[in-house]
Amino acid sequence: MILSEDKTMSEHNHHEHHVSSVGQLWAIGIALTLLTILTVGLSHVEIPAPFDVVVALTVAFVKAFLVCAFFMNLYWDTKFNSMLLIGAFAFFILMVAVTLLDTLYRNDVVPSF
């Protein structure tokens, strides 16, 4: 399934690689800078405990998406490369989740740590 979709995508892309316009690249750069200012500004706002991290990470994910999609060209690339990235992230979440199943439910944290 994925391979056949992949093929039509790459068929479409093959002869001409996507060339980003100068305006497009600057727009992404400026958006990333504004989001950086936003996240620094938001860090000065009092947001109750778990949500401050949620907000900071949301902004970080938006920035990472912009870089991956438009600087790393995943938006115009074969879906297979996006799948590799999403797969890596899924396995990272799995690693964290399984680790937390241990560390969050210990009666005593290892004393020397």
Binding site: T39, S43, E46, A56
Partner: peptide, 8 residues
């Protein structure tokens, strides 16, 4: 950056 520097 946010995870290390922006913790209030």
């Amino acid at each position: 950056f946010p995870l290390l520097y922006l913790i209030e």
